[in-house]
């Protein structure tokens, strides 16, 4: 099981290492979103510092949409999805493998963006541990839900327009929770960030489980 997961994840990450789509297109896009927020809000540093948690997570979620597209399109061409089906790997392993690869890419993206907001927005950091753990938990949730909804739309030409409608409402609770936890870690919101971290972890676990179960039904139909 674990070796199958790593096999699929390794495949996706190798493709990424060789094509550098996420690095060369998704990360710059996310940084552009940060810059646009900066100019749209008049580059007022006190405003930016206050709204950093929310702006950061909106930027991550928007960039994640692109990363999900990329992850799904790897299986679209050349009958790759049929190859996966014929490989005899358990659908849950395929799901977890693709999710792990997507999560690894998103984690890199989130860390680059974190550097971006700390430098560009001048956001203060009170609690580094909470900040990093929140990033990990929220990114796992986004990656798991993204992989599931991406698989739902595999092979569909209308994927680019439907994915945001499907995925953004689902990720709304992650944006709420992660922004709150970041608010606590950055000292801009008086709330218990650790309990938000716990709920983010719950979301991530739930979507990993639901995705593993549902992926079987989806692969049959692909």
């Amino acid at each position: 099981m674990l070796s199958d997961v790593l096999l699929i994840a390794g495949k996706d990450l190798r493709v990424e290492l060789r094509s550098r789509i996420a690095l060369n297109q998704v990360v710059p896009f996310a940084l552009l979103v940060l810059v646009l927020f900066g100019v749209a809000l008049d580059a007022d540093s006190s405003t930016l510092a206050t709204f950093t948690p929310g702006l950061y997570w909106v930027a991550v979620v928007l960039a994640a949409l692109l990363a999900v597209h990329r992850s799904v399109s790897l299986e679209d061409g050349d009958g790759a999805d049929e190859g996966l089906l014929m490989s005899g790997l358990h659908p849950a392993s395929v799901f977890l493998g693709k999710a792990v690869a997507l999560i690894a890419e998103l984690l890199l993206l989130a860390l680059v963006l974190l550097g971006g907001v700390l430098i560009l927005y001048g956001a203060p950091v009170d609690d580094v541990t909470l900040l990093l753990l929140t990033t990990v938990a929220a990114v796992i949730g986004v990656g798991a839900a993204g992989t599931l909804y991406g698989a739902l739309l595999s092979g569909q030409r209308a994927r680019e327009t439907i994915l945001p409608i499907l995925l953004l409402p689902v990720l709304a609770p992650v944006v709420i929770g992660a922004s709150r936890a970041f608010g606590d870690a950055m000292g801009s919101v008086a709330t218990d960030g650790w309990s938000w971290l716990l709920s983010l972890t719950g979301f991530a676990m739930l979507y990993l489980a639901v995705g593993s179960v549902a992926h079987g039904a989806l692969m049959e139909e692909a």
């Binding site: 739902l152 739309l153 569909q156 030409r157 209308a158 439907i162 409608i165 499907l166 409402p169």
Partner: peptide, 9 residues
């Protein structure tokens, strides 16, 4: 979103 999925090819 659900209704959009029902209209997929």
């Amino acid at each position: 979103g659900y209704l959009a999925v029902r209209r997929l090819e």
